[in-house]
Amino acid sequence: MKGKRMHETIRRAAAGLTALILTVPAWAAGGDKAAPATPDPARDWDHLWNEVILDITIIGILFAIVTAWFIWQARRRPGNEVGASVPLSPASAVGWVVIPIFVFLSIDLYTAANGWVLWNTFRDVPANRMEVKLEAGMYSWDYTYPNGVRTQNELVVPAGTPVVLRMTSRDTLHSHYIPDFRVKEDSMPGRITYLWFNPTKPGEHIVTCAEYCGVMHGYMAGRIIVKAPDEYAAWMKGEEIRLAAANAPEPAPAATKPTKPAKSAAKKT
């Protein structure tokens, strides 16, 4: 317990320090956090991704053009058998260090500030979320809803409600990756990790495993099924009835559509 508290202190201190370093640029880039609408990290991700890709493309093209130009200018031809660069004066030698450092550093800090804002979106779970427990194992995703309903490889969620997964693993590392929502986070034995996503409209999204976990790693897939809130409610009702029946005298498989019966092994975390 002592270790835990100490660790918490270190964490706070370091987070504070980072915040201090990043505050100024973050102000410029960030809005106020108490924005009422639920954020949509996937959309923000696309936004920042495109921006950063654009930035690096510009930097790359600039460097490439200058290089190509120099190569063309300096190709060996008669009268140019030996290079003719002039030595730098001490002042310009220093300038060629200091100025690039400032330019690069400001690009870096700007990128970091934007990245930090998005990071907060990914890590600050909205208050109106639904909490689902996930136990990953070789090779399945086992979800447990707050009311005890369990599903395997299929997570049914209502559109418009943010969902947070509290994840652990019963054997090796796995990573719950939903490409459409641009999120993933590893799960592992002995620790609980989390991720959240915001399913805005009904539809189906693939879940795939993004951490090498064993021979069948490539086949460890599932689906997120986003239903309209009323359809979701109806589905959940059905599942609850089934769960109640299962908890009564004889256990019956609490399975969803085509998948195998859920393992009842999902352990308390």
Partner: peptide, 8 residues
């Protein structure tokens, strides 16, 4: 390890 676990 020591600083991370609950019980030591």
């Amino acid at each position: 390890t020591k600083l991370h676990v609950d019980v030591w």
